[in-house]
């Protein structure tokens, strides 16, 4: 069989590439428990010192609190805007729709560095620099397209007759929105809340430019990288990793559970 060696080769390359993708994540988690001051091999013994160090570090704790606060507000706003935009795309046809969708969907394609610079300069005109409000404004721009994509995919599964049936049974468009469209999109809305929270929680470029002295957690990490590199970053990284993965899992769980339930 001539297929066997090509299969092995393909499988081998696949494993190597996945090792490359997962190596940094593994390194972060492993070395966060390493006692040595400089993370390397051989292993220097198990320790929770780095976790202790960050938990007592006031700047880290404040950054963490700010990041949570920003992520919570951003997820609600971005999901609302994403839902509204997805619904407009699903329901209406109008001139200029392409431009409208471009305005709503393009932000993630612009490098965050450039978004950061643009927002820094513009926000300085309207006194948003140095405030968490500014960070939130920027993060919502970046996150709402993700929410829109998730909710739009869910709407694509909604029979176009469903809204018609609701109107036909006496529901106005507003009450149809509340009693039909929202319940139908509920799993996607929860996924969108989780995903946008995760994206906002991780984002550091816009936050770095806009937040001023109100450092969020990733901005604190950036500052730590610029200063004295310390294995404390591993401990923060592990905690952040666990939180974001939990959010992603939650999103995944909410979508698949609904899908299973609807299977015939």
């Amino acid at each position: 069989m001539r297929g066997v060696w090509t299969d092995r080769l393909l499988g081998g390359v696949t494993i190597v590439v996945f090792l490359f993708i997962l190596a940094p994540v593994a390194s972060i988690i492993v070395f966060s428990f390493n006692a040595d001051r400089y993370p390397s091999l051989p292993w220097g013994g198990f320790s929770l010192d780095w976790y202790r160090a960050i938990l007592t570090d006031e700047t880290v704790r404040r950054g963490f609190g700010r990041s949570l606060q920003v992520a919570a507000i951003v997820s609600v706003l971005a999901t609302f805007i994403g839902f509204a935009t997805a619904y407009v795309d699903y329901r209406f046809r109008f001139t200029g729709k392409l431009a409208f969708l471009a305005l709503a969907a393009l932000p993630p394609t612009v490098p965050v560095l450039i978004l950061g610079l643009a927002m820094l300069s513009f926000f300085s005109l309207i006194d948003l620099v140095g405030t968490l409000t500014g960070v939130i404004a920027g993060h919502v721009v970046l996150c709402s397209p993700f929410a829109m994509a998730l909710i739009r995919m869910r709407l694509a599964e909604m029979s176009p007759d469903l809204e018609g049936a609701a109107w036909n049974l006496g529901a106005t468009r507003w009450s149809c929105m509340r009693s039909v469209v929202l319940p139908f999109c509920k799993p996607a809305i929860f996924s969108a809340l989780a995903i946008t929270a995760a994206v906002s929680f991780d984002e550091f470029m816009i936050a770095w430019f806009v937040s001023g002295l109100n450092e969020t957690l990733p901005v604190r990490i950036l500052a730590m990288l610029q200063g004295q590199v310390s294995p404390r970053i591993n401990a923060i990284g592990t905690i952040v990793f666990v939180i974001t993965i939990a959010l992603v899992f939650l999103a995944q769980f909410l979508t698949t559970r609904k899908a299973d339930k609807e299977a015939p």
């Binding site: 991780d202 990288l225 990284g237």
Partner: peptide, 14 residues
Amino acid sequence: FTSYLVRVYAWMVI
């Protein structure tokens, strides 16, 4: 959804 910053730090270490 895992911090890119932290992964870059991991490569610094590696």
